[in-house]
Simulated assay, not measured.
Amino acid sequence: MEAEFEALVIDVAAAPSAVPQPKAVKPVHERSAESTRTKQATTSNPTAAMLQKRLDKTFAEDKKRILDGLETARGCDNSPKGFVDPVCLPLMYLLNAHPDYVTTSSCSGRIALFHSLTSEGGSDGGVKRGNLKARGWVFVSHELLTDRQKSEIVESMHNPPITLDDKCEQAAAAASAQPSEAQEYQAHVGESTTFSPPSYGELSLKCEPFVMHVQCRTMESAKTLLSAAVSDAGFRNSGVVPPGARIMVGIRHAGLSLDVPLILGDGVAICSQDENTSLMSRQYLFELLTLSNQKLTENFRRIGILERAVAKRIGTEMTAVEAPSS
């Protein structure tokens, strides 16, 4: 009897239970988090699609306007001089040939002398330029300086300094004359190194490296361009502006810049008129200009690397494109 009872117990234990097992219930906080994620997933895509639609519309309008401007005489650019530097043209055409990019402004790099006034120097606030007191860009070159140009700059810095009254008289006399278009262009881009250093304000020697701003259609295309600039070509100070009305990539590298004051606010200059120190100051300024050339040379080399990196990243073959005829 006991043996039969034990066998019955074993059979019951081995048989599958006919009673349905309760399902596992997730905790309330897990169910709430999952619901939130689901809700976000269903609402984020339409929002992203609407944003991208607006970006596409703005991008298409901007690209058409910019490319139409580039077809005009000398091209059209947002840089101060208003047209594209020849060194930037290969990269510019490479990017503009791609449906996701359009260049908005650029500078291939330059060596310049810049005159300004600051609030500490007696002006009525901030840096002043473009008026009789502050002369702004006294000299600008987007190419390497020749030895003759360097010598002219050195000699010009040793000329008698021009006073503010003298500058006003010269400006009044120049206003009465009608300069030719060639003279206006020469004065604008700073091709002439013939000038007299001011006795007021600040005059600085600047070497400013390549910079380019590119409008992108999507964030993915912006990231691709940024990878080419930073990882491949070493433009470490590049960045992307998050999506707003536009997606912009700025390509730059501050490591090749130079900014040396030649005249301080009180008129003290590194180039002395004294015969005992004149030779030393001339040599010093000449070497500064030589150093600027070296930085600009490295700058041009990196632009070439960037061109090849962009061509590889965006999958566009580099083709020789002639600049718009003037």
Score class of each variant (00 low, 15 high):
M1H: 03
M1P: 01
E2Q: 07
F5G: 01
F5D: 09
D11L: 08
V12D: 02
A15W: 01
A15I: 00
P16A: 02
S17N: 01
A18C: 01
Q21K: 10
A24W: 13
V28G: 00
H29D: 09
R31D: 06
A33D: 03
E34I: 03
T36N: 08
R37K: 08
K39C: 07
A41P: 00
T42L: 14
R54W: 03
D62A: 11
D68I: 02
G75T: 12
G82H: 11
G82M: 11
D85E: 15
C88A: 14
L91K: 06
L95P: 12
P99V: 07
C107R: 05
T118H: 05
G122E: 03
N131P: 00
N131Y: 01
S141E: 05
L145A: 04
M157F: 15
T163I: 07
L164Q: 15
Q170N: 14
S176Y: 06
A177V: 15
Y185G: 01
Q186D: 15
Q186C: 14
A187Q: 15
S192V: 15
S196M: 04
P197A: 12
V211I: 15
V214E: 10
V214Y: 10
C216S: 13
C216K: 10
C216F: 10
R217V: 07
R217Y: 08
L225A: 09
A229W: 05
F235A: 04
N237W: 11
P242G: 02
P242L: 02
P243Y: 05
A245G: 09
A245P: 01
R246G: 00
A254D: 14
L258C: 07
I263N: 00
D266S: 08
D274A: 07
S278C: 06
R282V: 02
F286N: 04
L289A: 08
L289F: 07
R302Y: 10
I303F: 02
A311P: 04
K312A: 14
V321S: 06
S326N: 06
S326V: 05
